[in-house]
Design a protein around this nucleic acid. Structure first.
Length: 1081
RNA sequence: GGGCGGAUAGCUCAGCUGGUAGAGCGUCGCCCUUACACGGCGAAUGUCACAGGUUCGAACCCUGUUCCGCUCACCA
């Protein structure tokens, strides 16, 4: 294919495959720390190496690439740093699952070292895939700086941070009650526990008081934990239990004696019985209570949450079995007072959904509060801002109620904690070191001999760190910290942190704290938080639901068997290739949505069509440019036509609008501006208007339009490039002009240029567009074929306007489809002409002989109705004394002017209506032998059990209707009205309208009966009230005409059928009625 | 329970500092007009959740209500 020849339809797959490699080879995306351009940097939120990218990642990549490409083109030294996260629990679980499936082995079968080898292999494979996927999306990442959270450098940063925090007393090790997952067998941070509302029970259990036959009844949601009770608590002020202060109770089933303690924090006198069992080792509240009262902490579960040796007879039972057995035995002993339903929140493991069990164990913690202080202050001082700003409050409220962060995990995959225990320390039964007992030394490297451990033999803490601990360092660890690298100097703080709002606490907050603490400066200036991508129904995409959409499938297409069921249902023949550009544009357009983005593939398809439209506009340009080549001179130094000047002005507005929108992170707005400009202005108007010049013989005009066309396309390609990088590069490379750079991705981003603004041109073209619209509207409403040329008479008292119309007649003729144009001042009107009237323009199109004039009459009536409605409203407003007095003068003036305008307009419309000669009404005698319509309908309705009396509201509306003028209604209007009446069970009214319709139609046919479609009067004159009616009953009556086949639009025979039997003219009537039914009550 | 967001055309959403509502998709009608049928032209459609209040005037501001969603949270 030659350079100026494009295929008819745009093929994204073909084009997209070519460019990324090229961009990479040329190194356009590589950041330069030595550059003197201003820096702009973003670190990519590192995807987990667990698998492949989903649409959330695609959204992330799209927004960030948009920013980066925009800034890169705007002359910034851009760094967009890619990488992946080791994702401790998640990855370990995935690899374990695979190991089990493939080899039937557990990680323990392999041993730690061998297992980790497997995980690394996994990482290599999936890490690479994630990179490829980003390339398919067109993400302009600097691959030379790709990082992984467990790289040597980043691991060194982790150790450095750990040691320093420990030295500063901000990391400590302590035996505390933590969240434990009995399935993952590790501690979790508070954030990794997801609370879920559940229906449970509240069991009331009687605890016998020692030395009396009294019983204290406690209420609990977890009866099984009574095995670990070490006290019962009552409120010190509770009058009911004053006598029991200082007493003890005997723990049922166990027999242990436990004290009654007084605690006004734990106990709420109003709740339950006012007595609470205290299990410090298995409940966070009780833990605190235990601490306050110095109670023993008795753990009754092992690591898998089965009852341990402290549970006596229940030992070995799983926590849920234990509950059953305990409840049963309490019941047996008559100690279960009652069980009542109770709503509670259950904490589940974020990863495996197992119910979390509070567990007493030694763990490492970060003392967060001092770090949080700094982060709060930084945001308060505006050093970092949130977009949308509503997240600021969310950030504050979490930061201000922050608890210490448990960072140790009992996993293998991750950064092993740099703490060391003397090898000679206390041992467990199985001979291994008991880490719960030893005292560790925290050190960057394995320590040598010390006073406490003269042998110098150390064992490293087997635990690893919370994944988010290392992610929290990402903005500086990836830049080389703790080394003082050039990158760190050039690109920290980063400009924007862009990520999903779901990780504001997990990640954003932690980066803020770590960044401020170790770099003394915020990690990023702006935090842009995007929504979650859902499917089109707003449901979370998940593998189990089968509604996951793979971005790669969207981009490249996929055969049906590669799709998940829910997706395959929509694309039984497989998914078409929409292209990365279309997907990106869609995602950018959806960013204005709130907290969820509902991605519909229809939408993607719409933007694929947009890409195709752009392609074809360019194709049109190429086909009409000859050997033209745009030079570097100013585009306006040519004899420009009005359209030329106009599109340049519009283009400039679009450029300014996009700049403003992008600056404010309004990606959807920016996308919309470009879309509107390209399709709605460049394609719909400019290309059409410039065709005469481009295809004509005036060489100067041709040259000018060619220049403008290339100029506009080239510029808008650059404007669009951050959104659709592939398509724009392809077109940009093919356009004939002097390229200042070898790729669009490093060409300058367009900036508004005042010299292109041309309000005069916009004003001059405006009436021309209005006339074209007017004629098109008349044509459309009258169902005239686009091929049919018509004459137009345009009248105006504005000489300038008339002149513009005359001058640019060549615009009007083809676009409005005219055979002749007559321009003159307001005067005698052409006979039998359709009219469009506005304040300074009147457009007439003679229709005699072309169409049924009643159509035009209906149209005029509708117009009049509209104008009258508005006029009435305005008059009411203006007759209100206080409005005239108190509203700003300009507002009042505006309304007054509008009233005048409307009055003139209505008058003109009415004159016009008169000029279209009213039809002669011939009363057709009933055909011999025809059935009496009235009789027929009555019996039909009776069969359908239509209520004989309509309700009052409807009646009232009908009265008004009967009184109101129905003059000027067409046969079709009458018929619609009849159908409406019929649906209300008003046979007599219906019959009257039907016969009038019949008369009318008989008359109209004399001219030419069209295949009508209008139904406005029926809707207009029977407003609101009938809609409210419970129209359920006349279903059958309504259904009957509707069930009839719609008359084939072109079959004239259909029109001759008796009116009442015809399908009601509008299909719209049906949904409208349906709506009325549901809304009516 | 606290906090936050949402309720606008059939669907998904815009609507800035209050002046009687817009887009895209879809729908309907006419068209294969030599860039594009992934297209052109035209049309229809809204008690702006409900109830009060402020105001000359409210989709917008205030109060309350109802639904929906998110999020945080130790009432056993």
């Amino acid at each position: 294919m030659s350079e100026t020849e494009l295929s008819k339809a745009y093929d994204p797959t073909e084009v997209e495959q070519r460019w990324y490699r090229h961009w990479m080879d040329k190194g356009y995306f590589r950041a330069d720390p030595a550059s003197d351009k201003p820096p702009f940097s973003i670190v990519l939120p590192p995807p987990n190496v667990t698998g492949s990218l989903h649409l959330g990642h695609a959204l992330t990549a799209t927004i960030q690439d948009l920013l980066i490409r925009w800034k890169r083109m705007s002359g910034f030294n851009c760094l967009w740093l890619p990488g992946t996260d080791h994702a401790g629990i998640a990855t370990q679980m995935v690899v374990e699952r695979e190991l089990k499936k493939a080899e039937g082995k557990s990680r323990h079968d392999l041993g730690r070292e061998e297992f980790l080898k497997r995980v690394w292999a996994w990482k290599e494979k999936y890490g690479a895939r994630i990179g490829e996927q980003h390339q398919v999306l067109g993400a302009s990442l600097d691959w030379s700086r790709e990082r992984f959270t467990m790289d040597a450098g980043l691991s060194a940063a982790v150790r450095e941070v750990f040691v320093r925090l420990h030295e500063q007393g901000l990391i400590y090790r302590e035996q505390k009650l933590i969240n434990w997952c009995p399935s993952c067998l590790t501690a979790l941070s508070d954030l990794e526990v997801e609370h879920e509302d559940a229906k449970g029970s509240l069991w009331h259990i009687a605890y016998p008081v020692k030395g009396s036959d009294q019983k204290l009844v406690v209420a609990t949601t977890r009866p099984e934990t009574m095995l670990g009770d070490t006290a019962v608590a009552i409120h010190p002020a509770d009058a009911r239990y004053l006598a029991l202060h200082g007493g003890t109770v005997v723990l049922p089933l166990v027999g242990r004696e436990i004290p009654i303690v007084l605690d006004d924090v734990l106990v709420n006198m109003e709740f339950g019985t006012g007595v609470v069992k205290v299990t410090p080792a298995h409940d966070h509240n009780d833990y605190a209570t235990g601490k306050r009262h110095g109670l023993p902490m008795l753990s009754i579960f092992d690591e898998r949450a089965a009852v341990n040796e402290n549970g006596g007879a229940y030992r070995g039972l799983d926590r849920f079995e234990a509950r059953k057995k305990i409840v049963a035995e309490l019941t047996e002993q008559g100690l279960l007072v009652k069980e009542e339903p109770h709503a509670l929140a259950i904490g589940r493991c974020q990863r495996c959904n197992t119910i979390v069990e509070p567990r007493l164990s030694p763990q490492w913690f970060v003392k967060v509060e001092p770090l949080a202080q700094k982060a709060i202050a930084a945001v308060e001082q505006g050093k970092t801002t949130f977009v949308p700003e509503t997240w600021t409050n969310t950030f504050f409220s979490w930061m201000k109620n922050i608890h210490d962060w448990c960072i140790s995990r009992q996993l293998w995959w991750g950064h092993q904690i740099p703490a060391w225990y003397p090898a000679s320390g206390p041992k467990l039964d199985n001979g291994t070191l008991d880490f719960t007992k030893g005292t560790p030394v925290v050190s960057r490297e394995k320590p040598g001999p010390t006073a406490e451990n003269p042998s110098g033999e150390w064992v490293q803490d087997p635990d690893v760190l919370d994944t988010w601990f290392s992610s929290g360092l990402w903005p500086f660890s990836t830049l080389g910290w703790p080394e003082q690298t050039a990158d760190l100097k050039a690109f920290y703080p980063t400009s924007v942190m862009e990520t999903g709002h779901d990780i504001i606490f997990f990640w954003v907050a932690r980066m803020m704290m770590m960044g401020l603490h170790f770099m003394g400066e915020v990690p990023f200036r702006t935090v842009y938080l995007h929504a979650m991508v859902r499917d089109e129904k707003g449901e979370k995409m998940s593998k189990t639901k089968g509604n996951v959409i793979d971005p790669l499938d969207v981009i490249r297409g996929a055969p049906p068997d590669a799709l998940l069921p829910a997706v395959r249902n929509k694309f039984p023949k497989g998914m078409p290739a929409f292209g990365a550009d279309a997907l990106r544009f869609t995602l950018a357009s959806l960013t204005q949505q709130g907290r969820d983005i509902k991605l519909s593939l229809e939408r993607v398809n719409g933007y694929k069509a947009f890409a195709n439209k752009i392609w074809n506009a360019s194709r049109f340009a190429m086909m009409n440019l000859g050997d033209f080549r745009l030079g570097s001179g100013f585009v306006k130094d040519r004899p420009l036509s009005l359209a030329d000047r106009w599109i340049l002005s519009r283009l400039n507005k679009a450029v300014a609008g996009v700049q403003t929108a992008l600056t404010a992170f309004q990606f959807a707005e920016a996308a919309s501006i470009i879309y509107q400009f390209l399709w709605g202005e460049l394609c719909d108007w400019y290309i059409e208007l410039s065709k005469p010049a481009l295809q004509g013989t005036d060489e100067a005009a041709k040259e000018a339009s060619r220049a403008v066309l290339v100029f506009a396309l080239e510029r808008v390609m650059r404007l669009l490039h951050p959104f659709m990088p592939f398509l724009t590069e392809e077109i940009w490379q093919r356009l004939p002009f002097e390229r200042p750079t070898e790729s669009i991705s490093i060409a300058p981003y367009p900036e508004a240029n005042r010299k292109l603004d041309d309000p005069a041109a916009e004003a001059e073209l405006e009436p021309i567009i209005r006339v074209i619209d007017a004629v098109r509207s008349i044509r459309g409403e009258s169902n005239l074929s686009p091929a049919l040329r018509v004459e137009a008479h345009v009248q105006s008292n504005d000489a300038k306007l008339r002149k513009a119309l005359e001058t640019w007649k060549s615009y009007l003729m083809p676009l409005a489809g005219l055979s002749a144009l007559h321009v003159g001042s307001v005067g005698p009107k052409p006979p039998q002409a359709a009219a469009e009237i506005s304040k300074d323009l009147e457009v007439y199109v003679p229709l005699a002989g072309l169409i049924d004039l009643s159509e035009e009459r209906a149209r005029l009536l509708k117009e009049i109705g509209r104008a009258e409605g508005e006029l009435e409203g305005l008059k009411r407003k203006l007759s209100n004394q206080s409005f005239v007095e108190r509203a700003p003068a300009e507002v009042v003036e505006k309304d007054k002017a509008r009233v005048k305008e409307l009055e003139v307009r209505i008058q003109k419309l009415q004159e016009n209506l008169k000029r279209i000669a009213p039809l002669e009404v011939k009363v057709a005698p009933p055909a011999a032998g025809s059935v009496d319509l009235r009789e027929e309908l009555h019996s039909e309705l009776a069969a359908a059990e239509v209520p004989t009396k309509p309700d009052e509201q409807v009646k009232e509306a009908l009265e008004q209707l009967r009184e109101g003028t129905k003059e000027g209604l067409t046969a079709r209007d009458r018929q619609d009205l009849g159908v409406a009446y019929l649906q209300m069970g008003l046979v007599d009214d219906a019959v009257r309208e039907f016969s009038k319709a019949k008369e009318g139609e008989a008359g109209e046919k004399a001219t030419k009966a069209p295949a009508g479609k209008k139904s406005a009067p029926a809707k207009k004159s029977a407003p609101k009230a009938p809609v409210k009616k419970k129209a359920a009953a006349p279903k059958k009556a309504a259904a009957r005409p509707a069930a009839k086949k719609k008359p084939a639009a072109k079959a004239p025979a259909a029109k001759k059928k008796p009116v009442a039997k015809k399908k009601p003219a509008t299909k719209k009537a049906a949904p409208k009625k349906g709506k009325g039914k549901t809304r009516g009550r």
